[in-house]
């Protein structure tokens, strides 16, 4: 019947209802992320050993009662380095995503709302950036200057601007077609009001979902860059760098590489679960269709 299609359209826009049961993914993911976050914040207090003190007599110790995760080639405690390194990973992920959101969202809003030439220029620019694989784009940016942690974060953030802008644009394009935008124009509302008071509040759900998934991509990309020697520099305890340095001893002391590897997987899985859980809650298009068909 005639009412069916608008009914479906409305579901895409409907705000999440309060009091609904939270999806399992979100609960599990948020728990993982919260635990890692707490450990990272408390790292200086709870780390059993100093993370950067070299101890020649304690090199390559396998996990034991004193060094729960063993020691590395300089005799440093792997667990302590891991805890401190968590801060770096989280910092990278969050900073890079914040940068991509802060730049990508305005670009996408402008492209989607003004359309025409502005859209064409912005999106062709994004196409060009997207046609270089992210890691190479990061490499290119980092090749210019001596490596440093914050530069890696900026580079990774830069790399993820085009996809953020694209997503924002497509959401904006869809929302700009809605009649409540026409209603706002019929009231003579300013462009700023329409963009930030009418469109943006409705665009948030997919952007938040995408942003949270981007955090995990950013962590991985930053780690890969560090792994290639273009991010954090020794003696930093960045996880990517730790894995990179541990490669030479992989046969004899695999725990040095495995510990940061598993830590990173856990963090990324946690962030991903949060992202998917948020999608389930915030983005009703993916929710199960309610059956009662006319």
């Amino acid at each position: 019947m005639a009412a069916a299609s608008p009914e479906q359209a409305s579901r895409a826009l409907r705000p999440a209802r309060a009091g609904r049961k939270l999806p399992l993914q979100l609960v599990v993911g948020a728990s993982i992320v919260c635990v890692i976050l707490a450990l990272a914040l408390l790292a200086p207090l709870i780390a059993p050993h100093p993370w950067d003190t070299i101890n020649v007599r304690a090199r390559f110790l396998a996990p034991n009662a004193t060094y729960w995760l063993g020691t590395d080639d300089y005799g440093r405690d792997v667990l302590s380095r891991l805890l401190v390194g968590a801060r770096l990973s989280i910092f990278m992920g969050v900073t890079a995503t914040a940068i991509s959101l802060a730049v990508g969202i305005p670009i996408g809003l402008a492209a989607g709302f003004f359309k025409g030439r502005i859209d064409e220029i912005l999106m062709r620019g994004a196409d060009v950036l997207l046609s270089v694989p992210p890691i190479l784009l990061g490499l290119l940016v980092l090749a210019v200057t001596p490596p440093a942690l914050w530069k890696t974060a900026v580079a990774v953030g830069f790399v993820y601007i085009p996809p953020m802008a694209r997503l924002t644009r497509s959401v904006t394009l869809a929302l700009a077609e809605e009649d409540f935008i026409q209603a706002a124009r019929a009231r003579g509302e300013s462009t700023a009001y329409i963009l930030f008071r009418e469109i943006l509040p409705n665009a948030w759900p997919p952007l938040i979902v995408e942003g949270s998934l981007r955090v995990s991509y950013a962590i991985l990309l930053a780690a890969a860059l560090s792994f290639l020697g273009l991010g954090a520099q020794p003696p930093s305890s960045d996880w990517g760098l730790m894995i990179s340095e541990a490669r030479s001893f992989i046969d004899n002391a695999p725990w040095i590489a495995l510990a940061p590897g598993f830590a990173m997987c856990l963090l990324v899985i946690g962030v991903n679960l949060v992202g998917d859980g948020l999608r389930e809650t915030l983005d009703p298009r993916l929710r199960h269709r309610v059956a009662g068909k006319g």
């Binding site: 608008p6 409305s10 705000p15 209603a183 003579g188 409705n202």
Partner: peptide, 25 residues
């Protein structure tokens, strides 16, 4: 836009699709 304002007050619109015409937030 400024000169249109008084005209806009005088002339308004009701839309077809009640779901699309109200900002859901």
């Amino acid at each position: 836009a400024r000169a249109m304002l008084p005209v806009r007050r005088m002339a308004q619109i009701v839309f077809q699709n009640p779901d699309s015409s109200l900002n859901p937030r």
